[in-house]
Design a protein around this nucleic acid. Structure first.
Lengths: 158, 158
DNA sequence: GACATTTAGTTGAGCGTTCAACTATATGAG
DNA sequence: CTCATATAGTTGAACGCTCAACTAAATGTC
């Protein structure tokens, strides 16, 4: 039996990891707080509305919506239930698969989204893009895509 | 009254923002799941133990610990209560400020941390550092530090 | 065509975070 | 010294997410 020793993070890696942790956490916390304050919804719910608004007919199968927003089916089920209570999303039976459900963005949901979007985009600009140079923005895209490509293969969906 | 139009994200910015969102979410979700599975605690709690283990006497004032882990005092209060239930952290009155509390890492807490650390570091390596080139790792540090510098100034602490 | 397996989605409990309200002590102004 | 204010920390409710267990319908196999 061979036990491979853990290679610890050297000071530079330590610094990178903690900076990344602090930055992404602070960024998400800030955007979440802004969205909660201005639109009364967390960022995760905003994203659901965005994906629906972009889909043909402003509707999407639950599974597709779950994949698009990168969460479990369970999470989406709860989230759509909540969004339906608010009147921003409506559920419909899927005509082609009797197990399926389709989430539909309501007109009211579209209104709310339209009201929230400008402020949110301003926030993303202010907190993410403005502090970075064009070169850094490009680097961030490549880095993120490399990480996604590496992580995606096997992520459980609950 | 002047209303400044929101400048929407162009396709490139859109792509960068979504990639970053997906990457950081998937990364944190993965590390969280691994830590929960291997050590029975979420990443946020692991971080609390790490900070305590690094402090002189393995102890820290609640406020300092809250700042170090980048969360609200309320969150820390709840978290330390939970960690104390597990026997990993102990509270003590602060000798110099009678309002104050000191969180102390217990020997058992140190053991648990020592057991969890190798697996977690492996995870960070595997999911964050391995997919990136040395240049990208350097870029990520600079980008993260720029974002932190821009965000830190005013973040409410609840 | 019957039966095992897979897929779609829901449900409820448990947990961690947020928010607002609160207690208690420390600090600063007059 | 006194009173207003600021700081340290806690508390409970509301909320969103995870996990495991579950129902129901679709698909593959013999």
């Amino acid at each position: 039996m061979i036990v491979v020793m853990t290679r610890w993070l050297d000071p530079d890696e330590q610094r990178t990891w903690r900076a990344f942790l602090t930055a992404s956490r602070a960024l998400m916390a800030t955007l979440d707080r802004e969205l909660q304050r201005d639109a009364g919804m967390p960022h995760a719910y905003y994203e659901i509305l965005v994906r629906l608004s972009e889909a043909p007919g402003r509707q999407l199968r639950m599974s597709d919506l779950a994949d698009a927003t990168g969460g479990s089916r369970s999470r989406l089920s709860h989230a759509v239930a909540r969004l339906a209570e608010s009147g921003w999303v409506r559920r419909e039976d899927c005509p082609t698969d009797r197990r399926g459900q389709v989430a539909v963005l309501t007109d009211q949901g579209f209104e709310v989204l339209s009201g929230a979007a400008p402020g949110h985009v301003d926030g993303v600009r202010q907190h993410l893009f403005d502090p970075l140079s064009p070169a850094q923005i490009d680097q961030l895209r490549r880095i993120s895509e490399a990480l996604v490509a590496h992580l995606e293969p096997d992520h459980p969906t609950g």
